[in-house]
Every structure is written in C-alpha cells, then in structure tokens.
Computed example of a mutant assay.
Amino acid sequence: MKKLLTLVALAFVAGCATQNETSAPLSLTATSFDALAGWERENFSSLLPVLRQNCHRVMQLSPETSLGGADELPYGREAGNWSAACAALETTTDARSYVQTWFQPYAVDGNAFYTGYFEPQIEASLTRGGPYQTPVYGRPKDLVRTKATNGQMVTGRWDNGQFKSYYDRAQIDQGALDGQGLEIAWLKSPVDLFFLQIQGSGRLLLPDGSQIRMSYDGKNGQPYVPLGRVLVQDNELASSAVSMDSIRGWLEAHPDRMMAMMERNPNYVFFRRDDGSLAQGATGAFGVPLTAGRSVAVDRSVIPFATPLWIETKLPDAKGQPAPWQHLVFAQDIGTDIKGAGRADLFTGWGAFAQYVAGNLHEGGRMVVLLPRPPADSSAP
C-alpha cells in the first residue's frame, strides 16, 4: 500500500503535528500484560486469523530474512526468531493464553502518536470520456531503483547514460508521461487522484456498478510534502483545522489554485489493478491483506513486520468525540510520513465511517511492542 507506502496514516495531518518524542531513538521498558490498560477487555477470538496470517507469511521467508526493526530490540528482527512462536500457534485455540505465553511486552518510552488511513471509494471509468478525464497511471517502464555512490537506494530514470531524478508531480501533470499507454483508469477530478495517492490504494466505483481495486505500484522518488503543512504555512488553514475534509474543501473551493497547490507536493504514486478479494483490505507492504482496526503502518527501521503492538489512544466516535481505544494491532504496512519510535498509522477500512475516522485521527497515546520470546525463555513451554 503506502508502501504501501502504504503506502500504508494521514500524512498531511501528521506533518502538522508536534512529534518530538516520536523522532527520538527507540527506548523500551519491559512491562507485563497486567499493566496494559484494557487488556482484559480485548476481543481475543478475533486475533487468531490475523496471527495465523502473519505467521504464514513469516514462515515463507528464509530464517535469516530481516523483518526490520531497530538495533535496540532484543529479539524478533529476523524471520527465524518467530519459528517457535509460529509453530505453537498451529494448535492454539486460546489467543489470550498464546500471546501471553509467547510474547514479552515492552513499553515504548515517551509519547506515541497515531493517525489513520483508509481505502477511498472513488467514481471512475476504465475508458476516457465525459467527466472521466483524470488518468490513473500504472508504473512507468523507465522508473528504476539503483544504488547511489553512497550506498543508498535511489529512484529515478536513465537518460542518455545519466541517472536523473524522476519526473515530479508538476511535470507529470503537464504531460511528461503522455503517449506511453500507462493509463489504467480515469477519474472525475485531480483531487480524487491526489487523495488516492495519499492513501496508497483505493476502490474504484465503475459506471456499471462494479468495483475494482487500485493498489500501490511505486512512486517517483520525489520528496513527500504534507499539504496540510503547506496550507498552514501559507495561512490558508489554521493548524487546529487541518483534516482530510478541510484540505479537500480548500482545494475544491479554489479551482484556479488547486493544481499549483497539489504540485507543492512533488511526490507521485503509481498503481496497478488488484483483483484480490474486496472482502479484505489491500495488500500491505508485509505482503498480507490489511484488516480494518488490526493493521498499522509503522517505521520498519524501528518496528519489525508482523510485530503485535498494544495501542492505548483515542478514536473519534460517531458524534465526533474522542473515545478511548485500546487494542492489539499488527505491523503490516509502512507509510511515507510514518517515521520514528511510537509512530503508527491505523488502517480503518473503507466506506464513509472509515474515511471519517482516518481523517480525524491524530492522537497521542501509549504504545507497547510485543516481541516473540526466544524458545529458551523459561516462560515458554
């Protein structure tokens, strides 16, 4: 997704938030399950499918495969670290007992910060015509990733033997990709495309009533600039008023400035058609379908894929009021603006309420990382 990005948190809201703690190095303190607020009220029966989904994916990897994670983590950074816990899962019917036996909780020191992302539902056509004039582009053939002289991976294109940055949003809007046959769908509005790219995947509602999914298939390598931050800096929006709805509202209310404003973010996302089941979310960066309310995007350099996280925060309820939300989620995605310890982006699903929650979720809280116990741990059977 945001990748899966996504793509994989409401980046423009996060970009406006103060997150001093989340940019600090990872610091952990061992804790107990009794110290997790709301642990006894968790819906444990719903956890087994996600746990098994994660283990199935991990066990497809060679034992030495890195799942990510900071050096400070005592265990769980390689696929092989999960073999004992995943083997035990095969015969488990009691999720609470399983998690408490095979995982050790560590509280992330400092405040956590949470945002949300979702799968937008957008009117579209597979052919150009009438109101459908904004193309959704597939991945260009000349978009490549290569290793720079400093050893870092970079994205760009080769031009007469020289490696150059890939076209930015403004250049693509002005026709840099015309004539390559990359159009895989057509939308009614450039604003719809912009929000589809922010989320990293989405569902297209076709004129015949059917739906298809667009999934993330790469980005141009240009820096991501949160539009909410730009609008605040330009005194167009108050920082307290930044949300997905307010940003969309500003764009639609200023059609003469809309394109120039969106082009302040040079980052551009490409898509592919995903014919997977629409009963689940799009596939995240970890390679498993996302589950609403259980999947989060994290900074993979801090938190390994598959890791369970206990979240204590607040989510907006149907009346717009923040309500306590304490649940176990799983690191299954990454996001462009999801950086640092204690930072996570909750996948809220699809539909109007999922959009509402994602667009209004920017809350602090507590994060607890659950790492698999080594087989020799005396608390594991």
Results as ranks from 00 to 15, higher is better:
259 M>Y: 04
304 P>E: 05
216 Y>E: 03
225 V>N: 12
218 G>V: 00
377 D>V: 00
68 G>Q: 03
255 P>Q: 11
174 Q>D: 14
349 G>W: 00
275 D>T: 15
64 E>M: 07
147 K>Q: 14
62 S>G: 13
335 G>W: 02
240 S>Q: 12
257 R>S: 12
356 Y>A: 04
291 T>D: 06
140 P>T: 07
303 I>V: 15
38 G>D: 06
187 L>F: 08
67 L>E: 03
320 G>C: 11
202 G>Y: 00
59 M>D: 15
14 A>D: 03
246 S>M: 08
101 T>D: 04
287 G>H: 14
217 D>P: 02
129 G>D: 02
318 A>N: 10
178 D>R: 14
182 L>V: 08
18 T>R: 15
375 P>S: 06
237 L>D: 01
167 Y>M: 08
109 D>T: 09
137 Y>D: 12
3 K>W: 14
301 S>Q: 11
117 Y>G: 01
271 F>Q: 05
144 V>F: 05
312 E>P: 07
327 H>V: 11
359 G>E: 00
195 F>P: 00
185 A>N: 05
197 Q>N: 03
218 G>P: 01
338 I>L: 12
122 I>M: 07
74 P>R: 05
45 S>E: 15
279 A>E: 13
299 D>Y: 01
90 E>P: 09
141 K>I: 10
90 E>W: 11
273 R>V: 15
45 S>N: 11
44 F>E: 08
200 G>D: 02
